[in-house]
Every structure is written in C-alpha cells, then in structure tokens.
C-alpha cells in the first residue's frame, strides 16, 4: 500500500465546511499508475479528502473503502481498455452495500479504439455511472463537475 496515499490535505482556512470525501483508484488488472498519482495530487490541492486505493483495485475494494470512509463519490480510472468489463455491476454492488445514489465517475481510456466522447458517456451511463470522461481530460474539468454534483458552491 506504499503508493496508496490517504494523507489529509492541510485545512483550508477559507471554508469551514467539512471536506467532501472521495475514493479514487484504477480498476481491474490495470497497472497504469501515472494518471492516478496526478489525480490524487489535483484533488488534494482542490481541498478534497482523498482516499487513494492505487492500481489493481477490484470493485469490492472501492465499495468497502467508500463505506468505511463515508465517501461522497467514487472515481474509477481505467486506462488499459478493459474498463467496460471491469465496471459492469459496480452500481448494483453499491446499491447492495448501502451506497445507494453515491456519485460514480469513470475516466481514462475507457473503451478500445477511437470512439466519440458522447458514445463513451452513453455506454458508461448505461452501466450506472453518473459521468464518464474521455482520454486526456484535464483534472480541472473533473473538479468542476464534482463541485457541481456535490453542491459545494451552493
């Protein structure tokens, strides 16, 4: 668990609201670690309470972690092309584990080959994900979506 980083970000003085808690990791048998490390840093800097599970994470581990830490959202990465298979059934398992309605995002290289972004989003929405992001999405986009979906600016 060495590279798995659960460090809490330094308290921001501007907001006294409790931080939003997110669980991130790379799903399945996927070892692409670079994007995960970048996202971890970006979310910490943006003031989230991040539980990073690292690479090679099965669905169950995302869910167990989200239950214990009381997560507001789970962000799944998949880079190696097996994302659709690895993500199937995740929403149902969340419901099963008492995480009904938890925000689910997926991102990375979610499908094999060049597929338009709308098509990727449609496929992942069908799997029960709230949002999906195509290759090369800048972390600022993910953060803006999280802030909106978690009503952080209301």
């Amino acid at each position: 668990m060495e590279e798995k980083n659960n460090e809490k970000n330094v308290e921001k003085t501007t907001e006294m609201k409790p931080k939003k808690k997110i669980v991130i990791g790379v799903i399945g048998a996927d070892v692409h670690a670079v994007g995960n490390a970048i996202l971890n840093r970006a979310f910490l800097d943006a003031g989230f309470d991040v539980t990073n599970l690292g690479v090679l994470v099965p669905q169950e581990e995302f869910i167990q972690a989200a239950v214990e830490v009381g997560a507001d959202a789970i962000l799944v990465s998949s880079l190696y092309g097996q994302g659709e298979i690895d993500c199937t059934g995740m929403r149902e398992k969340c419901d099963e584990a008492g995480l009904k309605g938890i925000l689910l995002y997926a991102g990375g290289n979610l499908v094999v080959g060049k597929v338009p972004e709308e098509e990727i989003v449609a496929r992942y929405r069908a799997l029960g994900f709230d949002r999906a992001f195509g290759p090369g999405t800048d972390p600022s986009v993910d953060i803006a979506c999280l802030r909106k979906d978690l009503h952080m600016d209301d």
């Binding site: 808690k21 214990e68 830490v69 009381g70």
Partner: peptide, 9 residues
C-alpha cells in the same frame, strides 16, 4: 468500532 475518522457515522 466502525468508520475511519471522519468516515461513516
């Protein structure tokens, strides 16, 4: 026991 610090209550 149950929940990490700041986690599920």
């Amino acid at each position: 026991c149950g929940g990490t610090d700041g986690g599920n209550k």
